[in-house]
């Protein structure tokens, strides 16, 4: 989806402002949103990619003006409504209007003690198409749905640096079209390949690219 979340290479956002002694959360509600996000993610009503897609599909003007955890909250409300867990009418009413859907084991204290990232690697069904050291070209893809190929790295020639096994493919997982595991590569580009002749000659940038994003050169 070509929206505002895809920020790499944009101009005009100003300086990077750091906060000295920044707290983990700036208000109690931020911590609650983070915790809700984790606890609901645990129930697997949607995928991590579906959750990201819900945030990316916020109107660009909303995305830019909302704080980080406010975006998470809005994404969460969308995911909840879409999955039929909490209706938009219930969010508007501020209370439950219907009984819950049946659901699996909810997150408990012992799950928190073992809290760790999900593993998105899957068994391989076919050999990897590319090897480290091979030149590839990213495709010029512009899906209206979720993708992890940033705009600045489309239709660019780069070098395969590493192969990471087969992983859940975000482009299909986000739209409920299945895990569809794909080989994942680190693909590195020079600054000039991405930004042209005036780029910093010492710069290289890599992305983590799924095989369907790549073509041989």
């Amino acid at each position: 989806m070509n929206s505002i979340h895809d920020m790499g290479g944009m101009h005009g956002f100003g300086r990077v402002e750091r906060e000295v002694n920044e707290p983990v959360f700036h208000a109690p509600w931020e911590g609650r949103v983070m915790a809700l996000y984790r606890a609901l993610g645990f129930l697997q009503f949607w995928t991590i990619d579906g959750g990201r897609a819900a945030i990316e599909s916020l109107p660009p003007q909303t995305y830019l003006t909302a704080s980080y955890y406010a975006r998470w909250l809005m994404g969460l409300e969308r995911s909840l409504a879409r999955s039929g867990i909490v209706g938009a009418d219930e969010i508007a009413a501020g209370r439950s209007l219907r009984p819950a859907r049946s659901h699996p084991h909810i997150m408990t204290a012992s799950d928190v003690a073992n809290l760790q990232r999900g593993n998105f690697e899957r068994p391989t069904a076919s050999p990897a198409r590319f090897k480290p050291g091979e030149r590839v070209r990213t495709l010029n893809l512009n899906p209206e749905t979720h993708t992890r190929l940033p705009r600045y790295a489309r239709d660019k020639e780069g070098l395969v640096e590493a192969v990471h096994g087969c992983h859940v493919f975000p482009d299909t997982a986000a739209i409920g079209a299945g895990e569809n595991p794909q080989w994942l590569y680190t693909v590195v580009f020079t600054g000039r390949q991405l930004w042209g002749a005036d780029a910093d000659p010492t710069l290289s940038v890599s992305i983590e690219a799924f095989e369907p994003y790549l073509a041989p050169v």
Binding site: G8, I48, R117, G118, F120, R148, L149, P150, A153, H164, H167, V168, P170, L184, T186, V188, D200, T202, L203, S204, V205, S206, I207, E208, A209, F210
Partner: peptide, 11 residues
Amino acid sequence: RIRVWDSTAET
């Protein structure tokens, strides 16, 4: 040399 790693997957 500067190498930027864009975290576009679950690595």
